[in-house]
Nucleic acid binder design. Structure first.
Lengths: 347, 347
DNA sequence: CTGTTAGCGCTTTCAA
DNA sequence: TTGAAAGCGCTAACAG
């Protein structure tokens, strides 16, 4: 069941069948129709491997991520797949598992499959591996790391404006004592978020109380523990910003355990807006970094430069947006006690 | 940079290079070594598309799932990828988004890419699409649906034994008043779990109180609401089994809101053991359905029959295991009040 | 053990 | 607008 059979049935040459499949305009409407009927009738599916060989194009786009079980990624992968399929392209997903060695494997997989472009959405990356790809003129796009170069684009997330929106939201609700649970400082994205928080607070003329700053690990357990440490202190913020949603969810759990009400006793804002939030209660107010948008931009960065792999890369920017749900509210009216919530916090 | 260049540099024929790459044993150690050095030196990566064309094997395995953002799937996908890569094979992940039309697209993608086998892990499936694949002698494996046929294997999950382990665990802790929050009855897996619960309870001689049975939607919000309904009733079980983990997490949230302690006031058991549980507090006691095992079994079901696509399919069974964490404990000693926890529940 | 060579199924010049 | 034919890079049968 190959192109020859179709050609025979439609009484044309294989070239014409090929042209019809590829939507060439130099095929008469009638001829094309005859070919299409033959294809239909034979339930013919063009062999993509042969197409790739013949055309030098695999119609395959690589998507390298750290770990699909990290809630940030599933929606990204799905959206990337959606756009790709829409454009008749296939996706090769590869997990590095945060392991540089696996990254090497991933790159080699892309090379063997002759990916037409690769989106690298991990935080880690190794120069020499990137070279391996870009020296073969494979378009590349990164998330939030590096600067555009020949054939290499970058998607920058405007963390600063996202964090700023969160701080503005809180101040407009009357909060002035705002804490922050940051991510591991070894992580670039966590560092940037933390820096953006400090900047934003300063710009608003708000005091940064170091006691209100804790560090988590971007996972639930870290958020839980960080919040426990925070609640054990003699001071208590009226609101806390979190470096990501998982941290926020962990922190919320710790607060519930202490009998604290959100947002009555304290407001919480997350970051990322992971899928989980859609169905969780209380709905987490958070700063959404649209994975759908990232995926779209990434795919197009690659797909659009497929005819021109050596074009110079572009720097795209994705703007986060504040999503107001139910974990933020007016600042509680705390009075001069040193342990304003001790009664609540220990029962 | 192709096989010819390598052959030239190594001073052998392309056939020998090919043999070396494919680990044929009819190549002298020295020759092979020379070839390997040439490959190394040229940074040569064999073109998989050409290999596929020449050999009639794509080394590509399809994995069709409902929705990667459903927490059941990420680990399955990752594990499947892990095994596949280990065996030098590539994976094509496709989401149906629970949409029959998309399923058609998925199948067609597999056909075009000439997948060497397809694992179909969605609950829905359509006969004619399956035929499309199996009539082309592509090995298939299903999760928990259908019976083995020629070229079609099935992985059955022993829900009954899983649920039974949960019930036994509870009774051994002294629980006799056990509730159940089931999933939507339209979902086969939810129906089976519910049925297994009823059976298990009967077998233990325990009373099934219909008031203690609620229905969720296998998501957090459904679990939350179901638990709220349950808590609003005049009777209260000492333990509740859940049709899946997301339901349990939602239910836990509802309990916290009411000021109920887990497991002191009530024990909770989930089902699935999603990744999230690893870092959540309190750790959810649950029945683990190992995605890693499913993935491994699925891949091998396909890979092992690649030389024999018309072999008759096999029925594999995956045994769930009880994972004891912190949401189950001794049954509380409730006395004769009709609203045993009213004091707690309304404060 | 190694080389020669004919495909694999499609795309793409080049001619007609 | 269509067809003939030469690859694309590799595998595998066959010969030696």
């Amino acid at each position: 069941m190959n192109i020859k059979e179709v050609a025979r049935l439609a009484k044309v040459s294989t070239a014409t069948v090929s042209r019809t499949i590829n939507g060439s305009d130099k095929v008469t409407a009638e001829t094309a129709e005859r070919v299409r009927r033959a294809i239909e009738q034979l339930k013919y599916y063009p062999n993509t491997n042969a197409r790739a060989l013949g055309s030098g194009r695999s119609s395959l786009y690589g998507l390298i991520i750290s770990d699909i079980t990290n809630p940030f990624f599933p929606e990204l992968v799905k959206s990337f797949e959606d756009v790709a399929v829409q454009f008749g392209q296939e996706v090769l997903v590869a997990n590095t598992n945060y392991d540089p060695h696996r990254m090497e494997v991933c790159v080699s997989r892309m090379l063997q499959r002759k990916a037409d472009g690769v989106a690298i959405m991990t935080s880690e990356m190794e120069e020499h591996l990137i070279d391996e790809l870009s020296s073969r003129r494979i378009p590349l796009v990164f998330l939030d790391t590096g600067t555009p170069q020949e054939g290499i684009s970058n998607i920058a997330i405007d963390y600063a404006s996202g964090i700023d929106a969160a701080v503005v939201h809180l101040t407009s609700l009357g909060h002035t004592s705002i804490g922050f649970i940051r991510g591991p400082m070894a992580l670039t994205s966590a560092r940037i978020r933390y820096g953006a928080f400090i900047d934003s607070m300063k710009r608003k003329g708000l005091t940064i109380d170091e006691r209100l700053i804790e560090e988590g690990n971007h996972r639930m357990d870290g958020g839980h523990e960080a919040m426990v440490r925070l609640l054990d202190k003699p001071v208590m913020p009226t609101a806390v910003l979190m470096s990501n949603d998982m941290t926020a969810i962990g922190a919320l759990g710790a607060m519930f355990e202490r009998g604290l009400k959100v947002p009555d006793d304290m407001s919480i804002i997350g970051f990322d807006d992971i899928e989980l939030n859609t169905f969780s209660k209380p709905g987490l107010t958070t700063v959404r970094v649209s994975r759908k948008e990232i995926a779209k931009v990434a795919f197009h960065a690659l797909y659009d430069s497929r005819d021109n792999p050596s074009a110079k890369g572009v720097e795209f920017t994705v703007q986060p947006t504040l999503i107001e749900r139910n974990t933020t509210g007016a600042a509680p009216n705390r009075h001069s006690t040193r342990h304003p919530l001790k009664r609540l916090a220990t029962r």
